[in-house]
Design a protein around this nucleic acid. Sequence first.
DNA 1: ATCGCCACCGTTTTT
DNA 2: CGGTGGCGAT
Length: 747
Amino acid sequence: MQESLFSGKPFPVQDHRDTENKRSFNRQDLNRPQSEAVTHLDGPMLVVAGAGSGKTRTLVYRVAYLLEQGILPENILLLTFTRRAAQEMLWRASILLDESCQDVAGGTFHAMANMLLRRYGYHIGYTPNFTILDRSDAEGIINILKSSLSLAGAGKRFPTKRIIINMISKAVNRSLDLESLLYDEYGHLEEFLDDIILLRDHYEKFKFEHGLMDYDDLLVNFKRVLKENIQVRQEVSQRFQYIMVDEYQDTNAIQAEIVRLMAATHNNVMAVGDDSQSIYSFRGADFRNIMDFPRIYPNTRIIKLEENYRSTQPILSMTNAIIEGADEKYTKTLFTNVEGGSRPELYSAADAGEEAVYIAERIEELRKDGLPLKEMAVLFRSGFHSYKLEIELASRGIPFEKRGGLKLTESAHIKDIISYFRILVNEQDHLSWNRILLLLDKVGPKTADKILVVLKSADNPLGALVAYPAAPGWRKGLMELGAVLQLIKDPALAPVDQFEILIDYYQPIFERIYYDDYPKRSRDIEQLKTIIAEYDSLAAFVDDTALEPPEAAVIEDTADRLILSTVHSAKGLEWDTVFIISLAEGKFPVSQALPGEQWEEERRLLYVAATRAKRRLYMTYPREVMSADRQFSRAPLSPFLAEISPGLYVSSGRALGQMGSFGESRSGYSYSASRRGGRSLSAASLNQSNALLRNASILSKGQAVQHPFFGRGTIDKVTGERTVEVVFDRHGRKTLHLDYAKLEIVK
DNA sequence: ATCGCCACCGTTTTT
DNA sequence: CGGTGGCGAT
């Protein structure tokens, strides 16, 4: 098995190894702390590094150094946040050294957990035959359960499936009781508590019965194997002599524990991270993992990288000011030796349309001045903020690629095709069975259900399918389905051949179901074919589409194209010129962001966005936005920008030169200032009532406590600095996190 | 009872 | 764009 990137896909061959990159990897470029991080051989190491400080470069050099020292590539493990990041690092390392770095084990936590769980999972009762659910599958299951349990429409504002899946996942990732989480963070959903818990229980059962595993299960179960089976732990931890984790601030408790267990033998963990760039708490990430690292790994060597090599001073001053406003003050103030540069520009547009025109014009200007499109990027908070701009760019013939937002594998027709393959890999994947049965004419949910019952208990589902007593209306369709599955099941066929045969069968169905836009959709199918052609194992392809979904269709496939991206997807990347759009209150930060932690995370998100820029930074906002009810309303500038010194940027925009608009921008400022005031007040009062309970050290076993939802209880165990186990009189044992739980001491 | 079609609504962020 | 609810057809 090819393990270098934890998947069957071969290491990509990069053709653009330009000299510029070779020059930038000159060893003299490393500063002293970087050299230390690269050459320090034994013991744990924490590298705290600011944006643009050369984290990637440090990691790449370390890989090269270790290989030079004679460490075998397969004993080095490089855990990164995205597969792309791992690929890029290994590719860069191959410039420094030779191709041996291709055998370095590298990839995402999930890909690694998947691979090792399939190998070792039998120790805790798992067959290697499971299907990985992606997010939309998980949401689909919640939907099915919701209607089968007759919960749909039970209340006017029943939370959406996405919110429910997020809650379930967050509870798992924080090792929190779902009930406590529901109460503490989703108090407004209190009336649905029972329904949500019921849904969760059925969801767990559904996955178990249908051979499915979601993202969280992969990590949780892998952790279980490591923890419960000493033999596995030894085998794995002996193999990985050096473990490096990038973007450590984005790991959650489970991932941190996996790292610790995998390092059990050699203890050579190097974690790299920046607490100011923590933007994934909604999925359980906890930047406190960084703070806790030295405690978990005694004798940790801590290295700080504070020099910024990316941006010019005016951009850096701006980004420092953004993060300066944070409630919790962090450690680093970045400085740069990059000379020159001009102040960032803030453009105030009348509305989203004018904003799009402004961006497009700027891009055309810069392009005319010789800046390639690939050196520019447009960043935004949410996927749909770029719709207007996408139309504008398309009409001007500017090629672009959108990252984040809808993935190729999330479109209905691609999911259809993948479902056929998932059945070949796992015949008990009833979620996929259901999907493809529904594609048959005259077969709806009820009929599909009846067929599924038979398939579920059959030893040979394919045989049972063709033997099913079908009604005349759809017998022919069922037979054809059975025949094509039988045909492509042949293990001698390469995935791409299976694909060809399948498409012959699927084409008529495809044209019938998506009759209005199937020509457009067929391009996606072509794209999928080129992807599948790179695999020689169908199972690896199916895994990858769930773990690392390919991006949505490229509008025009030329090498030089503009990147449009959500801020989340832009993490770790950099461009010469960066545009940040929709910087209006309610769009960035999103209106849902509550004061407190969520608000602070939005601020860090803006910090991440602004620090992507090397030489030029443009920020824009519309003064008028369309709200949900199609009414236009005035939108003040994002409070994060309104609160920093206006001297740090240059303002422009048609209305801003006039007297009236000055008042307008002031009123925008005062509005956000009042909001901030309200927030600090509530944060203060919260702190006051919770002052005694932020830290578990003052609690001890037997102490009586009061929880606003669970009522009266007794402390049973203090399990951490901020977590306790409480036995409640009416709700039993709960694990509570003091950062969230509003626990009071009963005297 | 079940399926197919049409019109309408509301969009956080994702390995 | 995708999910949903209503309604007519089978």
